[in-house]
Nucleic acid binder design. Structure first.
Length: 223
DNA sequence: GCGACAG
DNA sequence: ATCTTGTCGC
């Protein structure tokens, strides 16, 4: 049995869900400080091999400051609601290394924030782990029902507005931002149907894993 | 039991 | 997310 299979074997979905319920109580909302540098993180896979990309850009100019890649095996399987336990195997070391070298005022994460069965989606998990303001951006809905209020479509789950639509995207707070703030900032950095740093991170990770097109990221870190 | 189900 | 051929539309 491989190292990865042993890790997958040890992963307990029920314990993971209980951990999310506990950790969700530690989230904070608050308001965003001054934004100068914002990031986007995404992971692409080939089998269990994950390539994480972190792109940092200036705000509001959206000029690329840095782009890093990290290759690592993701052993935990994908289970709806437990995405963080898979993606963090790649994102944690990638983000950890980056934060030792540069500052990030706000991070966009590919996935949901609090629009999650236990209010603790990937963006919330990342924000809490690194004490970093985060916003979750997802292409598909995980929980809740869409409800129009004024000219904005919100996602309501258990009577609470936990996300809002922006074009075809679902935007939800992770850590340190209100939903209104998340919507406003995300709108201001979305240029091609996706927040710019996330679009670049997606492109870089896909290219690195062998998608064919040329990438936009040079720095590659250890695996 | 059945449908829903981020990436 | 990834696998994977052809097809529809600008």
């Amino acid at each position: 049995m491989s190292r990865c299979e042993r890790i997958a074997e040890l992963f307990d979905p029920e314990k993971a869900r209980r951990a999310q319920e506990l950790l969700s109580r530690l989230l904070w909302s608050g308001r965003l400080g001054e934004l100068r540098r914002i990031g986007g993180v995404d992971v692409s896979y080939r089998g269990n091999l994950g390539v994480g990309a972190l792109v940092i850009v200036t705000y509001p100019e959206l000029e690329v400051i840095s782009c890093r890649l990290l290759v690592r095996e993701a052993c935990v399987p994908y289970i709806p609601g437990l995405l963080a336990f898979r993606e963090l195997e790649v994102i944690a070391p990638l983000l950890g290394e980056a934060l030792r070298r540069e500052r990030i005022d706000l991070l966009f994460v590919n996935g949901h924030g609090i629009s999650h069965p236990r209010r603790f989606g990937l963006a919330a998990h990342v924000g809490l782990l690194f004490r970093l303001p985060t916003i979750g951006v997802a292409r598909r809905k995980l929980v809740g029902e869409e409800r129009r209020r004024g000219d904005i479509t919100y996602i309501v789950h258990r009577g609470e507005e936990v996300a809002a639509r922006l074009g075809r995207l679902y935007v939800s707070p992770g850590v340190g931002v209100t939903l209104e703030e998340a919507l406003e900032v995300t709108r201001s950095v979305t240029k091609a149907g996706m927040p710019e740093p996330l679009r670049l991170a997606d492109k870089a990770s896909k290219a690195a894993i062998g998608g064919g097109k040329e990438g936009n990221c040079l720095r590659v870190l250890s695996s």
